[in-house]
Amino acid sequence: MSHFGQPHSVLYRKGDFQTCSMFTHPHPARAAHHVGHRWSELMAFKGLPTGQNLDGLLSSLEGLVVQRTEDRRVFRAIIECVQNLERHAAPDCPVLFKLMGRVVDGGPRFCIRSLNPIRTGDFDQVSQWISNYTELQHWASDALHEGEVDWRTLYRKWLGQPSRSSRGGAGLGWVSLARLSLRPPVLRIIHVGGEPNLFFSVEVACGG
């Protein structure tokens, strides 16, 4: 049985929260049919980025994705993504979070995506992050072995630095996510209804 061939009650449960909705594919049998090489939406969340909502989301996602020890990798990526929403998203606007899955060479792959309005006053800071992150990729690409970005060396370097973000983050989130992912995460500003939103996407493989 493939990783995604688990009972529908686990893969496609619905949940209701006070200020958000969390849903999965409305036709589990059809979704199960498509689980394979093509991406299938496993869970979607839209709601305010409150601690209660995001804790509920994390709890649901853990039950959904962690079925073997190797799967902890994707949950580690999910933790960082979800906690970034709690730390950095505008608190009074809904955020979107989506988890998709497919099987490649017998192993599960997951794509984590989020879209959140940027906090008032944070636009310059977020723009600077993206600029730093892009620069980091170029810098890392130059410093490497065999053309691969050495995110581990960067992670060690940053871990050893004493600075922290003003909201309790370690400033290691992007590097940590890049290290867990198949390819560098996508991070960009998208304007929705004239308002700046941060789009984030990362793809994680969890062994065969």
């Binding site: 949950f75 960082e80 906690q83 871990l159 050893g160 400033g171 290691l172 940590s176």
Partner: peptide
């Protein structure tokens, strides 16, 4: 530990 986030990673260090 089973999981630790990046905020915890610096505290462990």
């Amino acid at each position: 530990l089973e999981y630790f986030n990046t905020s915890s990673s610096k505290c462990l260090l």
